[in-house]
Every structure is written in C-alpha cells, then in structure tokens.
Design a protein around this nucleic acid. Structure first.
Lengths: 130, 130
DNA sequence: CGACATCTACGACGCTCGTCGTTGACACTT
DNA sequence: AAGTGTCAACGACGAGCGTCGTAGATGTCG
C-alpha cells in the first residue's frame, strides 16, 4: 500500500491540476497556467512557496538537476481523486457510496450523454463483478 | 436562491452530523454523542466554541429562550451534501459528474444491492428528465 | 442563605495555510 | 566588468481553525 500522503489543500490541488494537465513544469509555467485558468491571480513567489511545501510533504517531486527546477505530481490524478472522494464520503455521507452517487445525479441535471456514459460504467462494473 | 453559507470545516461537519441524526441538541448532548462516535475525544468547551462559531457563520441556529441553549442545523443534510459534492467536483474533477461517479464506483466494489439501487436512481432520473 | 454544579462567554495559544518582500546566487548582454 | 533579469531560498505576517483555561452568570440542594 502507498503510504497515504497528506491531503492537498485547495491551493495545492489547483497546482496539481496544472501539473496533471501539462506534465512536469517549472514554477513559471505553473504560475502562468494558473494566471490563465484562475479567477484570482497568485503571485509568483506564492506558487513557488506552495510547490516547496508540497515537495516537503511529498505531493510533488522536484528535479533540481538544472538551475530551473522542474516539478511533477507525485500521485496520479485518479488516485488523488479517489482519496479525496473517499474522504468526503466518510465525512459527509457516512461512508455510503450510494447516497453519494444519488446526490451527484440529483445535483446536476446530467445531460443525456452523461447519463448514458454512467449507465455504461454501471454495466462494466457489474460485468467485472461476476 | 439560498445565500450559500460558508463550507463547514471537518470538526464542524462532525457536529452537523450529530445534529442531523439527533435533531436539535444542547451542547452537552452534542458533546456526548461525539464522545461515542468519535475516535479522538473533544473537550466540552471546544464543542461549545465550535457551536458558537457556527452560529456566527449561520451554519446552525440557536434557541436561547432557555438557559441551556439548543442548537439546530441551519441547512438540511442533503443540501449540505450537495454543496460539498459540488465543491469537490469543481475542484478535483473539472466539473465532470461522470468522472466523479466513475471514481465512486471504482473505489468501492459496490455490492449488488447498491448497484441495483443506483440503477434505479438512474431510471428515475431519466424519467424525470422527460 | 450558602455551597456546589452547570452552563455560556471571553480570551489565549499553537498550528497550518496562503501570501508576499527581500536576499543572494547564477546567467546573459553590452 | 557592470548592469539587468531570473531564479530559489528564507523569513514574516495575517487569518482561520481547533483547543482549552478561566471567569461569570444562573440554577439546585442542603
């Protein structure tokens, strides 16, 4: 089992999303990508500090072979999503996946394509269970 | 539209879960219920302080007509779950309900009953969309 | 009445998080 | 060599959170 890293905070998760999308990045690349995506814009040194903290925690890995360091997400997007979802499920849904899915469906009037997609997932899941 | 209260923190959510389960409670009742459920146990004044903070934020409503105040959750459990799920969906899943549901399913090898339940939800949801 | 329990209120502390200013190292240009 | 720009590192700050000690008000029982 992987050692269960600390949960990323909001700001950290925003950075991870950039790393997942772009792959390994310098601080500057992350900063500029955030500038594009984000509403509020974050100072360069803030992003740097965040990335340093995340290195400390093990959320990212740093390549310092060059003067300009390159950061990379330590965990996959899927894995992190699962961890976060698991946490929320325990904290707010009493561990019930069913309730969680129900809320997810009722929340968003899911589009027809989405519904079909989910149905397909269900089928595959069931098949695998056999 | 309801004014979108601040998100409850971890500790606050634990308290809300007690209030949802037991209905309106005194501080002492909440404290003791937490003592039962929780691993780590929280001091009485801590719970009191938390509830005072939550009153400040509007997360709970306080009846102070009696000397011993009675607290009640301001928002329904469902509503809060939706808010939290929406937030996580935006922050970690790029707003995709499908991805979220997929992860929820893959996370827990859902039991047969759960799968059937979810399928039923899907049907109802589709019908309602018509 | 007086002692004791119960409850709320107030203030403090330690911690984490996000933010930034500043500094010093390194590189490039002229 | 001097000037300019980029970068990582460090330290600081303010806010929010969870924790608690203590004080002060109010009730209860002898």
């Amino acid at each position: 089992m992987t050692p269960a890293l600390p949960q990323p905070t909001r700001a950290e998760l925003a950075i991870l999303r950039v790393l997942w999308k772009l792959g390994p990045c310098t601080v500057r690349q992350v900063h500029e990508s955030l500038r594009d995506t984000q509403d509020k814009d974050t100072g360069y040194t803030t992003v740097l500090k965040l990335l340093q903290n995340m290195t400390e925690k093990g959320l990212v890995q740093r390549d310092e072979s060059e003067r300009t360091h390159v950061y990379e997400a330590a965990l996959s997007e899927k894995r992190t999503q699962r961890d976060l979802l698991r946490d929320l499920m325990d904290r707010a849904f009493g561990g019930s996946a069913t309730t969680l899915v129900a809320q997810a469906l009722s929340m968003k009037r899911a589009s027809a394509e989405e519904l079909a997609e989910i149905r397909k997932l269900l089928d595959e899941h069931e098949k695998r269970g056999k």
